[in-house]
Simulated assay, not measured.
Amino acid sequence: MSETPVTVTVNGVEIAEADIQTELQHHPLPDPAQARQAAATALVMRELLLQEARSHGIDTADTDTAIATLIERAVQLPQADAATCRQVFDANPKAFRTPDLYEVAHILFAAAPGIPEDRAAAKSAAETTIADLVTDPSRFAALAAERSACPSKATGGQLGQIGPRQTVPEFEQALPKITPGTVGPEPVETRFGFHVIRVERRIDGRPLAFEQVQDKIAQYLADTVRHTAMRQYLQVLIGKAEISGIELEGAGAGSPLVQ
């Protein structure tokens, strides 16, 4: 028999278990106890903010508007000026450039996820193909046409230029590790199967001018300041409140209200 959940209260106001169960849909964690903790924490934070709004004479009939009004009044968010943005830009030159592009060809050995025998066979076939290419790299297009399960086999495995988020993450993450003009030494596993990848060429990104990224830097700084200020504000409210039935250490940082 499952244990009855401990009642959660905020300054004497009970957070209904039914509300916590409804909130669970917004916290899809694999561990049920962690999911309930996250859901209950979010509702406690919300109740704290609503109680604080009422204490400031803010109408809480529309809860979202009330919380937004309270935060606007109580949390000071200084705007980053051009000089501050320039400091960030000058300190991180490699961060402000266009992404590298890769001209790529591949040979796909398809295997559905969750079928170990098929995955093992696909990996073995990919390893054999890499060994064949070590012996004769010029055979890549022919082997792609012969062995690949991707429609790109019709063009020798050519995928053209690949940029950020144009392929699955495992494939994209492998590209910088492969020396241009060569085949990767190991098969790359994705949900589609195993890939033999050849990087034909890398096109290096180019630096961006400050004016091109100033707004992006300002938004990043504003988001960072807002996150920090909200976390500190929630921690102050937690410190003043009488909360039972839940442990809130570090809750201000983890609340979805400060994301």
Rank of each mutant, 00 (worst) to 15 (best):
A229P: 01
D62W: 13
E103Y: 01
Y220K: 14
T155V: 14
A241C: 03
H56T: 02
D132E: 13
G160K: 00
R97W: 00
T228R: 11
T224D: 12
D223L: 10
D100E: 02
G157N: 05
S55E: 12
L50D: 01
A121T: 11
A82R: 15
P137R: 02
D118S: 09
T65Y: 07
A18L: 11
R119A: 15
E211R: 11
A141Y: 01
I107K: 13
Q173H: 13
H56Y: 06
R201I: 00
E170Y: 03
T65H: 12
F210L: 04
Y233L: 01
T41S: 13
T63W: 12
Q21G: 00
L101M: 10
I67C: 04
T41V: 06
G184W: 02
G252R: 11
A61Y: 15
A131S: 10
L77H: 09
T41H: 02
L133M: 05
Q87I: 09
L221G: 05
C85L: 02
Q214M: 06
A35S: 15
S124I: 01
P185W: 04
P256H: 08
E146R: 15
G181H: 11
P5G: 04
Q25H: 08
V44L: 11
V188A: 04
G239I: 01
T7N: 07
Q232E: 12
F140Y: 09
T155E: 08
A83H: 15
L175G: 05
M45P: 00
A121L: 08
Y233H: 12
E189N: 02
